[in-house]
């Protein structure tokens, strides 16, 4: 059994979706405890990569591929955990991510998603061109702690303000922390629109989330 967990851990470190998928299937077929497979396999792997990233030893593709592999494993094991009526264990937090309406740039958002995954958060990535309302629907559905809205254009940044305004209008502002980011954004902008957080890089966003959610 521990061999299977070691396999999962290594496959996440290697960013190998195929092996993660095979090993996760073995967990299910052999009736191994899926919570243990997540906690002692997948998460252990992502922790190793997270540490290597912090130490400057891992590069972006390493982290992003590990995050993808982890997602594949969770995709298989989570339904099993639910089926058995078990609890997956606490994640550090849940974050709903997307690029705002009218904007289709997503590299920065994808990097941010991977960094949050590597740091132990559950990430729900909505994709690009997302309306304020759709961010909020998803955030409510999953019980998110943070909504992260990305924008690359000076002309679409306004979508971040619309998100904050939408939450206010619907008396939901205190339910979620709102993070904004992307090329033309700044702390000044975040303050101006009343967002809870802004970060220039994905790493800084993860740190900020750690600080804000700890409060």
């Amino acid at each position: 059994m521990s061999e299977l967990f070691a396999e999962l851990k290594q496959a996440v470190i290697d960013g190998d979706e195929d092996i993660v998928s095979e090993s996760s299937q073995k967990v299910i077929d052999q009736g191994v405890n899926p919570v243990d497979a997540v906690q002692l396999g997948l998460i252990k792997g992502i922790e190793v990569i997270g540490e290597a990233w912090k130490a400057g030893e891992a590069f972006l593709p390493d982290v992003m591929m590990s995050a993808e592999a982890m997602k594949v494993g969770l995709g298989l094991l989570e339904p099993e955990i639910a089926k058995l009526g078990m609890s997956e264990g606490e994640s550090k937090g849940k974050i709903v991510l997307g690029t705002v309406e009218g904007d289709i740039h997503d590299i920065g958002k994808n990097i941010t998603g991977a960094m949050f995954t590597a740091a132990g958060y559950k990430v729900f990535d909505l994709g690009t061109d997302i309306k304020a309302e759709d961010f909020v629907v998803k955030a409510k559905e999953v019980g998110a702690d943070i909504i992260g809205a990305s924008a690359l254009l000076t002309t679409t940044m306004i979508g971040q303000k619309q998100l904050v305004d939408y939450l206010k209008e619907h008396n939901l502002r205190d339910q979620f922390k709102v993070f904004v980011g992307g090329g033309p954004t700044s702390q000044v902008w975040a303050d101006e629109i009343g967002a809870d957080g802004w970060a220039e890089t994905a790493d800084e966003a993860v740190e900020l989330a750690g600080r804000l959610l700890a409060k």
Binding site: G56, F59, L60, P61, I107, G108, I111, T201, A202
Partner: peptide
């Protein structure tokens, strides 16, 4: 065309 820095993206 240029490149993405592999540390920061």
């Amino acid at each position: 065309s240029a490149l993405s820095d592999m540390h920061s993206g």
